[in-house]
Amino acid sequence: MRKSRLVLAPAVMLAAAALVLSGCAAAEEETTTDAGSTTDSTEEVAETYEVYALLPQGSDQAYGTFYVPAMEAAAAELGINLTITNSQYDGDKQASECEIAVAAKPDGIILWPAVGDSVRPCLEAAAAAGIPVTVTNSDLFDADKALSFGYSGPDTYGQGVSSAEIMCELVGDTPVNIIQLNGAPGNATAIDRDNGFTDTVAANCPNVTILQEESTDWTKATAQQVASEMITAQGIDNIGGIYAADDSIAAGAIAALEARGVVAADYFITSIGNTFLGNPLVIAGSLDGTVFQSSSWDGDNATRLMYAVLTGEIAAGEREVRFMPSVKVTAGNASDADVAPEW
């Protein structure tokens, strides 16, 4: 008797918790279906849309903590009922979430690809079900772009260009050897930034030579280790600068330099992000320049772009791209309010 009671207690607790939660969810759903049934009314204001947002991160990562609230705020304002998923950068999990989303037959799907190469089946399934897809944060590969209605988010290639422009301006005409630290291997953002940077350097300041480039996993710790190995390989005296694909990587590289007993300010260092980590480094002078990526702009515009699709502002076949402005942040403007870091 006692034993069975012990078995039951936690089970009941779980069931209770589950019911409370499901109650909320069910209530939410009721309101949306009610609103959905008024779709045929002529008043546009009363329109409520059901939208799935398939993200690879959420409040569990720094970028998401500003991105998700901004996305939700815009949704509330525009009358969109958002269901947000988080695949934790697991492509297979996101594919499964996409299947769920398609089965739920929402009015639209906002996709932030976890792994760029893996989203084709998801896009095709959504297209077959007649659900419009917009892309946020990192754009699709060219072959897949036709399957989406638009992209909003950072101009990842343009960010690389801006970072390179800062670098070229700083260096002037002196020949300088630099090392390049990229983002995670295979990541579309990492590839685009890499291309934007290298293309611009080749065009604008061929006097800058990239001695070596390596991938990181976007973390400071790994970046510090990789940078340290590169410095050893190339010799500290041969290196005049560093390009890092984001601020965390730059912070790692700076730490690697300082571990050698040199002053980071003596080196030409640029990156991308203008994060809580990067912005103070720019103010302190160890990082020469970075490119502002606003996560709240990103989240906000993801919703707004989808809204434009839902209201017919963007028709099928006319893919709209809304790039986030790539604002350069250097010592001159780093303390300004309009480039206050968000993540």
Binding site: Q88, G91, D92, K93, A95, V115, D117, P121, A184
Partner: peptide, 17 residues
């Protein structure tokens, strides 16, 4: 199955598996 169904093989796949 994962690689074929996704039309690509991701070396980081299976992180939540």
């Amino acid at each position: 199955i994962n690689a074929v169904e996704r039309t690509s093989a991701d070396p980081t796949s299976g992180s939540t598996v």
